[in-house]
Amino acid sequence: MDVLSDAIGAMRAGRPSMSLSAADPSGEMKVGVLEGARFYVVTAGSVQVTRSGEPPVTLEPGDAVLFPHGAAHELVNATDERAHFLSGAYRLDQARPHPLFQDLPDLVVLFARAGRFPSLRASIDLARSELDEEMYGRDLVLPALLDVLLVQLIRACLSERAGRQGTGWCVALDDEAVSRSLRAVHERPADPWTVESLGAHAGLSRAAFARRFTTMVGQPPLTYLTWWRLTTAARMLQTTDAPLSVVAQRSGYGSAYAFANAFKREYGISAGRYRQQHREGRSGRGGRPSGR
């Protein structure tokens, strides 16, 4: 998968939820911290979004906001008429957030100017249609649409910030050489990558690549490679019954012993115990995606 898909997949925890909400004139809604991400799209009226110590942001129909880190906030109806908005929430594992998510601001505002983000607008329209009409199969369609919406919102944020001066993941993904090396690591984490081979893959010398990658991503290439290998292994432990030797091989470790040591050093517990804990957690979770 690509880097953004991998980042979301690595952090996913539980099923998302979505609803259509309404606020009476001057109505207020306080929303606490969420271990994940939230979004809102105004469909009618005007809504102010406020955060502690920050100026309010006024949203008109079609405007969207994303809270990538689930920060606490307040929604206020800013008109004398009833306001309506689409809202969604995603449970994400914040214990080991992907650096791409860490690089996103606490609040992303996407104003609905003509012609901007057509794919996002199409996804919003589909989600509203599913919530408005009680159609068969919505329990399968809604979670899939929520995944699409999250990707489209983050894509829109990345495109807004791409091309700017500076460092960070938004810039790194827009840099041809660095993004090529990141894709290689994500697609083939088990390959015997070195700084030199990654640099050659990116079309740069070893030294130039190491400097460029570290400056943009915030970590040296092999540090990120190790992080991603162990994140990949953790995901396999959560979602498969593959033997530890297979997990070790697929995540780039030459032996189960080397993998076991690296995993315990990173996570603080053994790989076997980690798998057991997540199985116990899954057996206690249930639920379905919510509608209205």
Rank of each mutant, 00 (worst) to 15 (best):
Val3Trp: 13
Ser5Val: 07
Ser5Gly: 05
Ala7Ser: 14
Ile8Gln: 05
Gly9Met: 06
Ala10His: 05
Met11Asp: 06
Arg12Leu: 14
Arg15Trp: 00
Pro16His: 08
Ser26Pro: 01
Glu28Gly: 08
Glu28Trp: 03
Glu35Ser: 13
Glu35Gly: 10
Ala37Val: 13
Phe39Trp: 11
Thr43Met: 00
Thr43Ala: 11
Thr43Tyr: 03
Thr43Trp: 00
Gln48Asn: 12
Val49Pro: 03
Arg51Val: 04
Gly53Ser: 07
Glu54Phe: 07
Pro56Asp: 07
Pro61Arg: 03
Gly62Trp: 08
Asp63Val: 03
His69Ala: 14
Ala71Arg: 13
His73Tyr: 11
Glu74Ile: 11
Ala78Asp: 09
Ala78Arg: 01
Asp80Ala: 04
Leu86Arg: 10
Ser87Phe: 01
Ser87Val: 04
Ala89Gln: 08
Tyr90Met: 06
Asp93Arg: 05
Gln94Cys: 00
Leu100Glu: 03
Asp103His: 09
Pro105Glu: 02
Val109Ala: 13
Val109Trp: 05
Leu110Asn: 11
Arg116Gln: 10
Ser119Val: 04
Arg121Gln: 13
Ser123Asp: 14
Ala127His: 09
Arg128Gly: 06
Met135Lys: 15
Gly137Phe: 10
Arg138Trp: 15
Arg138Pro: 08
Asp139Ser: 04
Leu146Thr: 07
Asp147Cys: 06
Asp147Ala: 11
Leu153Pro: 14
Glu160Lys: 10
Gln165Trp: 06
Val171Asp: 12
Asp175Ile: 10
Ala177Trp: 02
Val178Ile: 14
Ser179Val: 01
His186Tyr: 12
Asp191Thr: 01
Trp193Glu: 04
Ser197Lys: 12
Gly199His: 01
Gly199Trp: 06
Ala202Pro: 00
Gly203Cys: 03
Leu204Ala: 02
Phe209Cys: 00
Gly218Pro: 14
Gly218Trp: 09
Leu222Asp: 09
Thr232Ala: 12
Arg235Thr: 11
Thr240His: 00
Arg250Ala: 00
Tyr253Asp: 04
Ser255Ile: 07
Ala256Asp: 10
Tyr257Leu: 11
Ala258Glu: 11
Ala262Gly: 06
Phe263Glu: 10
Lys264Arg: 13
Lys264Met: 10
Glu266Lys: 15
Tyr267Arg: 14
Gly268Arg: 10
Glu280Phe: 02
Gly281Glu: 15
Gly281His: 10
Arg282Ile: 08
Gly284Leu: 15
Gly287Cys: 12
Pro289Met: 08
Ser290Glu: 11
Ser290Gln: 13
Arg292Ala: 12
